[in-house]
Design a protein around this nucleic acid. Structure first.
Lengths: 146, 146
DNA sequence: TGGCCCGGTCGATGTCGTCCACAGTGTTCC
DNA sequence: GGAACACTGTGGACGACATCGACCGGGCCA
């Protein structure tokens, strides 16, 4: 993990499908070398080149962060939540909540249904607080503090 | 946005660099047609092919969700927060918090510094609650409820 | 029916990915 | 110090691939 690796990752932020023959020169390497390095980064699961969709553009007008209080093992609850397509993100936290989940639905009504019909009935869920939002302000896919 | 588009997006979840000549047949199309469709989806900003890094694998051992209470315009606070590399995600919410931010740091100590030296001094921030976590349970890049 | 548009296939061309042999550099261990 | 080795980048050859334009067929509307 050196400056060249980081340069590669930075290039992948603007275009994940950039040809190696462009990528190489941009990071000061031959195409072959750039390919080897990116391959290595992918193999080591440092980076993953994927298509990221914008829920808004796909009809997901209603988004919310759900803060859950859980009695029992929060991992079981997270597993159960993740089985639903509406849940795009889940983390186990410490603090005043045990678990946060990010949920995307078509309409506000669907969110209400999801919380009441799916989330609340899950074994161990004692309370749900929802924080609706209407757009993502910032979303970075590269963490680069090093 | 039809079933074929969705199939394309699904393929991009496992490999964003898949050749069009593989992608086409996989979604029941010629390579050219697959290319045209993906190009269109990218142009319309429905999808974005990017390299997504795993903060853990890059030395970001300490992550937290920050819930902020803001007096004034939360957007200004979000703008300011987003100027820092530690912040990978920010949303403006309604509910008992005004703003959530996701933060990645190297060590717990860095998180403490970040909250105290950067977040709290921001104009308008009246309270910060932090929810540390030690790993991401689920992270989906495709929202596919349609 | 005729014309148009959208979205697909097909095929030619030049570019690109892939693989391999080789070279340079730094490290380890007598 | 120097031999052996691992690691990483280079260059080239070959086959696979992206790219683009020409063409084609179905749905739609006058």
């Amino acid at each position: 993990m050196d400056d060249i690796d980081r340069a590669i990752l930075r290039e992948l932020q603007t275009d994940g499908r950039i040809p190696y023959s462009d990528l190489g020169p941009k990071v000061g390497l031959s195409a072959s070398a750039a390919r080897q390095r990116l391959q290595r980064l992918i193999d080591e699961k440092v980076v993953q080149v994927v298509g990221v969709t914008d829920p808004m553009a796909m009809g997901g007008q209603t988004m919310a962060l759900l803060g859950l209080h859980v009695d029992g093992d929060p991992r079981a609850v997270a597993d159960e939540l993740s089985r639903h397509d509406e849940v795009v993100y889940a983390v186990l936290t410490s603090g005043t909540f045990d678990l946060f989940a990010e949920v995307v639905c078509r309409r506000p009504h669907d969110l209400l249904d999801f919380v009441n019909d799916v989330v609340r009935p899950i074994e161990g869920v004692t309370a749900v607080e929802s924080f609706p939002y209407f757009g993502i302000h910032t979303h970075r896919f590269l963490w680069d503090v090093d």
